[in-house]
């Protein structure tokens, strides 16, 4: 929150209320930390804007692809969003299920072990996920994609032709889903555990089964926390670089076809792949795409806030 109020409103500033030194020190530190975050954020934004300006103003034929910045960045933005949305759609329900299982179904010992295991997933570097994706997951998915093409090919998402390497948008999305699973499920687990037993007992005393109790008391109470966790996961998925760069076979532009080998890249992966061979205006172009990613991330977070706040009255936070 940027609106950190540090002093109680004093009438016309004439009289200040008594403040303890401890309070003053703490208020000062908190204020400092808040300002620092804003300064860093503003610094990053300013850097991106300044460095992107040459690309924004350059003539179209100077931009890679020679048809202007917009048509260079658009497929990247699309690819970024598509991969992240796939990841989120797969990971969130799974994460909630894992969190519920750990919190309410698994025997105590098993729950603990499972919790550690899921947390461990978060500690694996993303390049390892990349290798796992390309060497293990992708080949395993090829028959599945062929099946999809044959049986569900009438849906544009699965139109095919199915990739023979499995390095598709869907694979990239699934790898991302595994990567964001730990954060989403860890946060869901925490919020579910914080549901006061008073509310759980209220449901049980009405004659709710365990699942009904979860639906009545646990899920609604944890809803905003789960959304928050999902947004953190989405942030990670949007910005993920190495895993996507390794897994995704890039050629072609905007398409909803998830199982073919012609996919748009994502912003972050594209920067990682292109940067070493770039110079001059090309670098400015890459930074301009980075600016787009920055804006997307900001927009996603604001959207999440809006969703969480919409029913703030009913959040149970009072």
């Amino acid at each position: 929150m940027s609106s950190t109020r540090t002093t109680p409103p004093s009438p016309a500033g004439t009289r200040r209320s008594v403040r303890r030194p401890g309070d003053r020190v703490f208020a000062g530190t908190a204020k400092g930390a808040g300002i620092l975050i804003l300064v860093i954020l503003a610094g990053v934004a300013a850097f991106l804007v300044v460095e992107a300006v040459p690309a924004l103003t350059a003539p179209a034929e100077d931009i890679p692809g020679e048809s202007g910045l917009a048509s260079y960045v658009a497929p990247l933005v699309f690819g970024t969003l598509l991969a992240a949305v796939i990841a989120l759609l797969v990971a969130t329900p799974l994460a909630v299920a894992i969190a519920l299982f750990i919190g309410y179904y698994a025997p105590r010992r098993m729950a603990q072990g499972l919790g550690y295991l899921v947390d461990l997933l978060a500690a694996i570097p993303s390049i390892v996920y990349g290798f796992w994706g390309i060497f293990w997951l992708a080949p395993k998915l090829v028959p599945f994609y062929e099946w999809l093409e044959r049986n569900l090919g009438f849906i544009p998402l699965f139109a095919g032709p199915a990739s023979t390497t499995g390095r598709t948008m869907l694979t990239a999305g699934l790898v991302l889903a595994v990567m964001i699973l730990p954060i989403v499920s860890a946060i869901s687990r925490e919020v579910f555990l914080q549901v006061p037993s008073l509310h759980r007992e209220a449901a049980l005393a009405l004659g709710a089964t365990r699942w009904e109790m979860i639906r009545m008391a646990v899920l609604p109470y944890g809803r905003s926390g789960v959304i928050g966790g999902a947004m953190l996961g989405l942030g990670r998925a949007l910005g993920e670089t190495m895993a996507v760069a390794i897994v995704l076979s890039v050629s072609g532009g905007i398409t909803f076809n998830l199982i073919s080998s012609g996919n748009p890249s994502t912003i972050a992966a594209n920067i990682a792949l292109e940067f070493p061979e770039s110079s001059g205006i090309d670098i400015n172009t890459l930074i301009a795409s980075g600016l787009a990613l920055f804006v997307i991330t900001l927009a996603v977070n604001m959207l999440a806030r809006a969703i969480v706040n919409r029913r703030a009255d009913f959040s149970g936070a009072n």
């Binding site: 008073l198 509310h199 209220a202 049980l204 009405l206 004659g207 008391a217 609604p220 109470y221 009072n318």
Partner: peptide, 19 residues
């Protein structure tokens, strides 16, 4: 679950569902 449907309960601290 059936027992609790027949025997209702009011707790010491009011606990309406906050959501």
């Amino acid at each position: 679950v059936d027992v609790r449907r027949q025997i209702g309960m009011v707790f010491q601290r009011p606990n309406p569902f906050p959501t």
